[in-house]
Design a protein around this nucleic acid. Structure first.
Lengths: 339, 339
DNA sequence: CTGTTAGCGCGTTCAA
DNA sequence: TTGAACGCGCTAACAG
């Protein structure tokens, strides 16, 4: 365990000045070929490596982007972070990670940590029940750009990348209508969640497009727990106009819905048809998969969000104080489960 | 976009020295209550935040641990990173992330990046085909401790956390033997992979325990691609002593094996029974899940690995140059898929 | 109780 | 073509 060599030591051993060493290492044109060689030679011998923390410090830049998301073990987010890491690595940025576990408080703490670490920018998918956005607006003061993705806060003047769930829902509902379904239920997420709102909007829009009337009873909000889903199913199936198809919030909970339906001896895709969101690989292997699923391209979202952030960082570098905000909306796409 | 305040400015505004400010902010006992209050007051007003990069720099510690793993989108690793992040956050450490994509070259590059970022320590699950370990041994010189987990290199004197796949395999094979199976095949991973070796050892040990003779023909190595698995299946099923049960490398590929078996109109769990490793939630929802799966507790492995690393860091701090190496082996556990 | 000073490793003027 | 000197923000040893 010996200490790491510094340019200082190299300078001393070579009897030249520190700055000469620094310049030699950077291929500065004004350094004689001979000294340059000697410096590089010794540097290699000593396994010299520049101390990045020193450089970060003095340059006020860390080449690190912070990523805050709810839950890494969810397939969606792990795919997203995978895209993020890939896109960041390509530009020599590194990823600092934090999970909010869908807790506003933890989210706040992580933002603090990221600030302390002087990340160059942040990528955030907000916690399910974050209602106060102070910790985000705060970041502007510190000049730390943020790109939100997937779970976007209802704020003005932000960069974000998201998937168009409304259009995805239109596709999903239209698909069902074309299959002949006339009574289509929906098990949505928490009412105030933007993701829920988008889905509902899409649902209504699709009905309108087909000149069908909208029956609010067919839309049930849920907390997305297994119990919540079962209750929603019970609710829908007990209606007078019983749905023959149900659009469910995502691939995780649709499995619970299907399980419940099967308990009632309903034949999947016959007595009752399901469509959901995410299109996890899981559903392809599943016994009774939903008939179709709205793909949200998490990997691509992560990539795009990262690229956007890096572009913002670039702009900043050029002093181009700017008020343009990126709003990147990927088209979602209904994927039908072929047999 | 104003510049961040520093203790220097605070000092100037208050007409006191920089160090007084520093001490006041740290509740140093030798600072007068009055000045302390004034300093803290102003600091809050200015939204002062210490510049961590400066502190990292001068303390030579970043409170960051680097994590290098093959693929974030794999359920196993995303669960692991989740445990890592949780354990790290608990001790106020942050996680710097890199994916090797199972490429030795990328793995090397990431190690470099991590070194540059002066991470305090590293958590690594090695790439599938890493054969040269120089980039790891190298780290000792830089005094960066490493804890390997799950995918462990064959090196002396390392810390690691892993799950005992050998005992898991013993459990799996014994389970099948007790169910009456006498010809048990195994689709293993690449031959040289430690994970494969452990499984094979467990297989042999279980047979020995039950005083059965070992038939090497029943063990097939594979590259874990869909095609590789199918070929392995073909191989096994064409044998004279055709297996009635097959132990498959993991939950991902067992699905391919099952799919292949079904193509041959074999009845799962009747004509042929499967057991695998990982116990992904996926398999519970699946149409024809393996009968049982060896759980490897990725979240716990991540946690333990992190805790181990932090302990090593602690020891280092106390100058206790030590040659003890942690080898933490979690017991894996066969989980039977109840209906 | 408080101020002065040095130094962490590096890039970068400015001067020679 | 090279060197000396400074500063980034902070902590800590030393000096009052």
């Amino acid at each position: 365990m010996q200490k790491q060599p510094t340019i200082k030591e190299i300078a001393k051993k070579l009897n030249i000045s520190i700055s000469t060493v620094s310049r030699a290492l950077h291929d500065h044109p004004s350094i004689g070929l001979r000294t340059k060689m000697r410096v590089k030679e010794l540097a290699r011998e000593l396994d010299y490596e520049p101390n990045q923390t020193a450089i970060f410090f003095q340059q006020g830049k860390t080449f690190t982007i912070g990523v805050i998301l709810p839950q890494l073990s969810e397939a969606f987010f792990s795919a997203a972070i995978s895209g993020i890491e890939d896109a960041a690595a390509k530009k020599n940025y590194t990823v600092l990670l934090g999970q909010s576990h869908d807790s506003e408080e933890r989210e706040k703490r992580i933002v603090e940590t990221m600030k302390k670490h002087r990340v160059d920018g942040l990528l955030i998918s907000i916690a399910k029940n974050t209602e106060n956005y102070d910790h985000f607006t705060n970041l502007k003061k510190y000049n730390i750009p943020v790109v939100f993705f997937d779970r976007i806060p209802k704020m003005e003047s932000i960069h974000y990348v998201a998937c168009n769930m409304e259009s995805g829902t239109v596709q999903a509902v239209s698909f069902l209508l074309e299959k002949g379904h006339r009574v289509i239920g929906m098990i949505n997420g928490p009412e105030k969640l933007p993701a829920s709102i988008d889905r509902l909007d899409g649902y209504i829009k699709a009905l309108k497009k087909h000149r069908l009337k909208y029956d609010p009873n067919l839309i049930v909000s849920s907390d997305l727990t297994k119990e919540g889903i079962e209750e929603a199913m019970r609710n829908l199936l007990s209606q007078r106009r019983k749905p023959t198809a149900i659009v469910v919030f995502n691939d995780y909970v649709v499995l619970d819905a299907i399980q419940y339906a099967r308990k009632l001896k309903l034949k999947i895709n016959k007595d009752i048809t399901f469509v959901s969101y995410a299109n996890l690989p899981l559903s392809h292997y599943t016994a009774y998969p939903p008939l179709a699923s709205v793909e949200q391209f998490p990997y691509v979202q992560g990539q795009k969000a990262t690229e956007t952030l890096l572009e913002v960082l670039d702009r900043k570098k050029d002093e181009q104080e700017s008020n343009t905000y990126y709003r990147i909306i990927l088209e979602s796409q209904l994927m039908v489960n072929e047999k």
